[in-house]
């Protein structure tokens, strides 16, 4: 794998991502929803700029972080809040 690609885990599954992309973009590129709504619907990013909070998930053990505001990092552990 080149230095510009590395692995993160999303709900325990390894996903290869390019350096610098946001967690939101990485998950959307992989066709994965970012969270489940209150009524159980799949959701992904809407505003892309930290306003709508639709992209909230748990990053490295800290909950409710906006995926569009964080770039992926090698070994990052992402889990999607229920």
């Amino acid at each position: 794998m080149s230095a510009d690609l590395f692995q993160i885990t999303v709900d325990g599954v390894a996903v290869v991502v390019p350096r610098g992309v946001s967690v939101a973009a990485a998950l959307m590129n992989a066709g994965l929803p970012l969270r489940e709504s209150v009524r159980g619907e799949p959701r992904a990013a809407l505003c892309g700029m930290g306003i709508c909070h639709e992209c909230r998930l748990t990053i490295d053990g800290r909950a409710h972080r906006r995926a569009c505001m964080h770039a992926v990092a090698p070994g990052m552990v992402v889990s999607r809040d229920g």
Binding site: V21, S22, A25, S37, E41, M49, C68
Partner: peptide
Amino acid sequence: RELFLPFHGWTLPGVVGVGGLQALMKSGLD
């Protein structure tokens, strides 16, 4: 920020803002 007006189905994954798409593309959305 963008003004979003709700319509049927707007909460589906893949529905993003206009400025939202720009932001996401620049953040690596393919």
